[in-house]
Write a protein that binds this DNA or RNA. Sequence first.
DNA 1: AAGCCCTGTATGTCCATGACAAATGAATAC
DNA 2: GTATTCATTTGTCATGGACATACAGGGCTT
Lengths: 317, 317
Amino acid sequence: MNTPNIIEADDNPACYNIAAVERDTGLSKDTLRVWERRYGFPDPVRDQHDERLYTLPQLEKLRLLRLLIDHGHRPSKIINRSTPELTRMISASSPEQAPPPEIEAIIQQLLNHDVDGFRATLMQSLMRQGLLQFVTHTVAALNHWIGEAWIGGRIAIFDEHLYSEHVQNILRNAILAEPGRGSAPRVLLTSLPGEKHRIGLLMVEAVLAAEGAACVALGTETPVIDIKNAAPAYGVDIVALSFSSAIPQAAALTGLAELRSLLPESTEIWGGGGALARARRATDGVLLLRSLDDMRYALQRWRVEHLLPNGQRKMPH
Amino acid sequence: MNTPNIIEADDNPACYNIAAVERDTGLSKDTLRVWERRYGFPDPVRDQHDERLYTLPQLEKLRLLRLLIDHGHRPSKIINRSTPELTRMISASSPEQAPPPEIEAIIQQLLNHDVDGFRATLMQSLMRQGLLQFVTHTVAALNHWIGEAWIGGRIAIFDEHLYSEHVQNILRNAILAEPGRGSAPRVLLTSLPGEKHRIGLLMVEAVLAAEGAACVALGTETPVIDIKNAAPAYGVDIVALSFSSAIPQAAALTGLAELRSLLPESTEIWGGGGALARARRATDGVLLLRSLDDMRYALQRWRVEHLLPNGQRKMPH
DNA sequence: AAGCCCTGTATGTCCATGACAAATGAATAC
DNA sequence: GTATTCATTTGTCATGGACATACAGGGCTT
């Protein structure tokens, strides 16, 4: 069913088939083929069966292209530039400011593979700031910096894995420890198939937990139909979806629109995350949240609209 | 960029385009087209641009087919049967023996969508038994039963998502709370690309933590090359990989062999999980673990071989 | 200048069809 | 029983054409 992605990673420079490239760049097979047809890049060699084999440098350049396109550049304008030039464009677009010392210290421990120190520092940071501050400042900054470092090749994939695991551990632990459970509103929290990033989802859950809302977290990659069925089953007021920038903005918007058409109007739909940060507008009845603070305001608004001053619901559910 | 998936969800029965069906069934566009060409199903209507529009019943039948194929049926044998017949096949395929009462109670809360009760019962069970017992008995039994129920269609996908999230929460929390950190051996814990199941991995981590070993957990789906690089970076003694039964046994064995050829002999490789439970033998130098208890024995053996009675390593690292 | 509509180009997705490797199952020999 | 061979099934890839939507830039009005 699946062919091996990697044949000889060290010896053979061309070792990624088109499915692997689709997985690692997020560019569809169709897009990869049509770029090759139109622009001449990527220009993979072929194996004995005429199937495309991409090299690691090509894959890396494709990731840079993807990133720049996500930032508003047009493919035809940048596709034939060299990899160093693309890298320069990226660092030019993001001010490349050194991270604040506190973040820097955490990053250093990660790069030094100091697992225990890394975890301990994160924990300290959480204790000192409290969950809300920790999530909206430290974790957000770390995510941003790690993302940059990953693009720039300054961090190994396994370091990023370790980072993700530990932040998950700490956030889940903190969420579980948060006292006020079960008050209104009730929020269903998940992502659509294709969106695997859990940290964004956990950050949202942490903020909601800190604000005293009741979360029903379904993890990542729940098909739309199942969300439709889950919402009434758990009696939620709001369905919140997270889209990292790994997902095309259009896919995020159509997913939201589709869900909107399936859920009753009384159920609010919130969407947020990197893929939607620059979206102009969504379907009517879908709320775009461009930051975690946005979400806190949305939460306040919902409570004003739906709750009496004593915290009771205005209308029987 | 993207065409809308749904035109008229309520009035028009044909409202899913091929991208939406791919996302919700996990069947690729190519597969959907080739099934239509070969078997005549699914047979979607076309919009004014000749693009496929699938109906909800078609989508549901596709999901049943996917489920049966994952459990060993061949597409051509089942694709032209009716939806009720497929449903019957699914419920017939799992023997449906009653779980023990303790497990039954937890399952009931999950099926009743009693989120808080479910979490509370799990927590109680953990407190009463301790981490080791909880993992090797309760979680293992729950996994087994939930897997059966999923095959038999007695449990919704979103319930399974919720189950997975909460067990993760509780296990991660318990692991973090486990006192003895950092003693030998040091174990790198992950799965290969394609293996997404995290719970098996967390169960292993919980047992290791309870036994006082030092874990470096990289989450799921780490490419072999990255494992090769990570092992020396984190100075681990053992690399442990988990394979759920969703992965073909041959793929698991190949992956283990490939890794064995990349790591120095002094690094042990352990493999376990559903896919390997019935495997006869693996490459030389790879240890097959058929149960969590197997792993505890393996851990004891490693300590006898590598540690002095006072807990110091026999050889300087 | 700033806002708006219009129009042409850029771009991603879909289609049809052909081909073939990998997976599976059956049949055979050891 | 266990390994080997062969035939069939099945998913993925390739090609090239088509076209809807998104975007950029010119010309218009305010």
